[in-house]
Design a protein around this nucleic acid. Structure first.
Lengths: 141, 141
DNA sequence: ATGTATGCAAAACATTTGCACCTGG
DNA sequence: CCAGGTGCAAATGTTTTGCATACAT
């Protein structure tokens, strides 16, 4: 269980940390803001402060347990790190997030970095669009 | 001159707007935060408020005169819009920004959006790395 | 016990807004 | 002249921090 991951990361196994991990694991959308996690904690009756949520998420990020993403908008979004690199497509209308991976894009990025004399360390690619999900409220098609 | 662009955008030709356009045009790095523009204004003796800088940049963005970029870090970065879409490579060490364009990446993005049932509207791709510029203070190589 | 974690309130930032005054056309 | 623009200060929204208390080992 998650107890292992926490210990492995050198973090004490505390209630806030376990609860936050649980929420990230159970999440349907898998991409949550600190606020969203905080609200879920409140809803399940936990007395955990928003500051703690931010502190825990920052520690999780440092430990490689979660990734912090920056989509348009002002809040960071957090997702559980599952070791498979991927990029994101976000629906402008309903906020739905999909993940994708394309080796050709990865390759071309490495090539672009090389051409410009950069030692590539990381990259962030987000595609914005309108999804055609039936649940999407502003769906065009 | 820039007077044209302002009028075309339906914006009165005021001193703050002209000065801000000038700074964006003259900028060596071409990618500036609102703060950086504000400081340049102060340095050149202009009495322009930071709020005005933000307001003007937001209007310029709406008019298509500038683009607002979100790199890692909390401040937005603004660049003069020159009509040629491109993505960015940013040096983690010295903050230098390079632009690039790769049709293969563009194509694959469209394909990824299509595969996931999204009507692509926009995208943001930033590559982070260490540059090997001789002026880069933390240069490794 | 003892070093860490947490909660709360306050601080820190980046950015936006309200409002009285100024300015461009 | 007058709608629109600007400066300043105050508000906002997100994230971080200080500090006294509580908890895991």
């Amino acid at each position: 269980m998650e107890t292992q991951n926490l210990k492995k990361a050198g973090l004490k196994v505390t209630l806030p940390r376990m609860k936050i991990l649980e929420i990230l694991e159970r999440s349907e959308t898998r991409h949550l803001t600190a606020e969203a996690i905080y609200r879920e904690l409140l809803d399940s009756g936990e007395e955990i402060g928003l500051a703690t949520v931010y502190r825990v998420l920052t520690q999780f990020e440092a430990a490689g347990l979660v990734s912090r993403l920056h989509f348009e908008g002002n809040q960071a979004v957090f997702e559980l790190e599952r070791g498979r690199h991927h990029d994101h497509i976000v629906c402008n209308e309903c906020g739905r997030v999909e993940e994708f991976f394309d080796e050709t894009i990865e390759q071309r990025q490495r090539e672009m970095a090389r051409e410009h004399g950069f030692q590539i360390k990381d990259h962030a690619l987000v595609i914005y669009g309108d999804c055609m999900d039936e649940s999407c409220p502003h769906r065009v098609a």
